[in-house]
């Protein structure tokens, strides 16, 4: 398909789609900053063991002598404990690093799984139309009208809190958004000439969906999967905050904030909420900014919402 690069005009450099996207992305300063923070966070999570070795504090040990004041209160940020200690005298920074592992893993895993399900169902519903579309579309409506957090409560009360359950709940309630988007895109793509051409060459529906249509969906898939990560992180933190996610004493951001909230200990130890709260906020903010930047870089033609509206007018 790609024509060999000819150098008839030396001043004109041929740039591939990937290179153009990268150039647009590099011009987006907010997006780069967000990406930098995400990479930093990933390093922090991966290097939790390094943080542990460097501070000499484990994530679980309660430092009763150094980590608590003589009256038994947590110690504020200082030389010994960079981010202070919690109500039990544990090192907040080390726990944050391990919590980052949990949050990022769950956020990423849930988004990829939800995206896989959403894309598969969106593809089938959009491509086949008819009954498949009605049944799958109605299923999406059904899932969307279920009270998410309450059903999560019910599930946890039966099966007990666990990582797998958290991921399952997040996946179950977040695949519909991308599913709808993909369905809409597939409906417009399946009429296009290249699909007709493929069909006339004898390609079956699954080969058309995977080989012809799927590559054209890479932009919404990348953007929406990125945008789902912060939602997954917040959802996990919320579940842990309500005591329904990660089981203590395993460190998680939501769990740390819940411990800070119990007995209102954060009112006398601001770092217990401000530091985990700020990291959680900056993490979700970064993923949202990165999602916006990716959308702008991958699809420079502008906001899809505007185009769709204009086109639908008679």
């Amino acid at each position: 398909m790609t024509a060999p690069a000819t150098d008839t005009a030396p001043a004109v450099v041929q740039r591939g789609s990937f290179e153009l996207t990268l150039r647009r992305l590099l011009r987006d300063k907010a997006g780069l900053l967000a990406l930098a923070f995400i990479l930093l966070l990933v390093a922090f999570a991966l290097g939790a063991g390094v943080v542990e070795a460097w501070t000499g504090h484990s994530a679980f040990e309660q430092y009763r002598d150094t980590g608590l004041t003589p009256t038994g209160m947590p110690v504020g940020p200082g030389a010994e404990f960079l981010f202070g200690t919690d109500g039990l005298g544990r090192d907040v920074m080390v726990r944050l690093a391990y919590g980052a592992r949990t949050s990022l893993t769950i956020g990423l895993l849930a988004s990829v799984l939800a995206s896989f399900i959403g894309v598969s169902i969106g593809l089938v519903a959009g491509y086949f139309g008819g009954w498949a579309d009605i049944v799958l579309g109605r299923t999406m409506d059904l899932v969307m009208s279920i009270p998410v957090l309450l059903c999560a409560l019910a599930l946890v009360s039966v099966f007990g809190p666990s990582v797998i359950l958290s991921v399952a709940v997040i996946v179950f309630f977040s695949w519909t958004t991308i599913g709808r988007v993909i369905r809409g895109q597939v409906i417009s793509l399946r009429q296009r000439d290249f699909v007709q051409a493929s069909r006339s060459l004898g390609a079956g529906p699954f080969s058309i969906m995977i080989i012809d249509i799927l590559p054209n969906l890479s932009v919404p898939i990348i953007v929406y999967t990125t945008m789902m990560i912060p939602n997954g992180i917040v959802f996990e933190a919320t579940l842990s905050f309500l005591g329904l996610g990660i089981v203590p004493p395993a460190p998680s951001w939501g769990g740390m904030l819940a411990e800070a909230a119990s007995n209102s200990i954060y009112l006398v130890a601001w770092w217990l909420i401000m530091i985990p709260g700020a990291i959680l906020l900056i993490a979700t903010l970064s993923f949202n900014i990165l999602g916006d930047a990716l959308r702008d870089a991958l699809d420079p033609s502008g906001r899809p919402a505007r185009k769709r509206r204009k086109a639908s007018k008679p």
């Binding site: 933190a237 904030l257 909230a261 909420i273 906020l281």
Partner: peptide, 14 residues
């Protein structure tokens, strides 16, 4: 859109 509800509530209380 990025602010987790419970973090906002606790920050406001503080």
């Amino acid at each position: 859109v990025s602010f987790p509800t419970f973090v906002l509530g606790m920050a406001l209380l503080y």
